[in-house]
Amino acid sequence: MTGLAAASARPGRAPHAPPEDLTQVELVWIEKQVEHWIRFGREVREQVLDRRRRILLFPPGATFALVRWAANEHGTVLSRLDILRAVAPGEACQTIPTVTPGGDILLRVDGWPKVERMLQHIDAIETIGIDPLEVAPDHWRHVHNRFAVCEMPRAYTMQRHRAFLLARRIGA
């Protein structure tokens, strides 16, 4: 036995627990029906299940953006973007479809107009030379709260990023 099957067969583990206590994200791609993808994030492992499905594994503390879209014969039925932090074993987390065991939700937007605005916000952060997975978690929470009340979030600037990195370095 290898891979996910071996990991979940270990004594004391839940049947579908991610190996080595990593957060697993199942991605599905059925053109124009169900499309899940990672907008940013750095997985430590990937397992291809078949030509339409794969699993990405993220270590505790890793930040990643998961985009989920689905449609039927009448049009779009789901557009969602979640920015999540992978949790450590035993850490409290929220459940998210396709994410095992779940994650710390830093941001969630629903509906294509908000998802599109959020993708543009991520693009703007990359444009100034910052990797979105290095952005301060509090910024993603700020953006989530501003989007929730239909307000524009503050831009994430290089100055804010430097302040976050300095605070993280000194343990504040």
Rank of each mutant, 00 (worst) to 15 (best):
A6S: 11
A7I: 08
S8Y: 06
A9F: 12
A9Q: 10
R10G: 12
G12V: 05
R13H: 08
R13C: 09
P15M: 00
P15C: 08
A17N: 08
P19S: 01
P19I: 00
P19W: 01
E20C: 13
D21M: 07
T23K: 07
E26F: 03
V28R: 04
W29V: 15
W29F: 15
W29P: 14
V34Q: 12
V34Y: 04
E35K: 11
E35L: 13
H36W: 04
W37P: 00
I38D: 01
R39M: 11
F40N: 08
G41S: 04
R42P: 03
V44M: 12
V44I: 07
E46F: 03
V48L: 11
V48A: 11
V48W: 05
L49M: 11
D50C: 11
R51D: 15
R52Y: 13
R52K: 15
R54G: 04
I55Y: 08
L57T: 00
F58R: 01
P60D: 00
G61S: 07
G61Q: 03
A62Y: 04
A62R: 10
T63P: 10
A65M: 02
L66I: 03
V67D: 01
R68D: 00
A70C: 04
A70N: 06
A71M: 10
A71Y: 01
H74C: 12
G75T: 10
G75A: 03
V77C: 05
L78R: 06
L78M: 09
S79G: 04
S79K: 04
R80G: 12
R80M: 13
R80S: 14
L81C: 09
L81Q: 08
D82W: 00
R85W: 01
R85N: 01
A86T: 10
A86H: 05
V87C: 05
G90E: 00
E91R: 07
E91L: 10
E91N: 04
C93Q: 09
Q94I: 06
T95C: 02
P97Q: 10
T98M: 12
V99M: 00
T100Q: 13
T100E: 01
T100R: 15
G103V: 05
D104K: 08
I105P: 12
L106M: 07
L106Q: 06
L107Q: 01
L107W: 01
R108M: 09
D110N: 12
W112P: 05
W112C: 01
W112H: 07
K114F: 03
K114D: 07
E116Q: 15
L119Y: 10
H121L: 15
H121I: 14
A124M: 03
I128V: 09
D131P: 14
D131F: 09
A136P: 10
P137R: 04
D138I: 04
H139T: 02
W140S: 05
W140R: 00
R141S: 14
V143T: 11
V143N: 02
V143Y: 02
R146Y: 03
F147V: 06
A148K: 00
C150P: 05
P153F: 00
R154F: 09
A155W: 09
T157R: 07
T157Y: 00
M158G: 15
M158I: 13
R160V: 05
R160S: 14
R162H: 12
A163W: 09
A163H: 12
L165K: 13
A167Y: 08
R168Q: 15
R169G: 13
G171V: 01
A172Q: 14
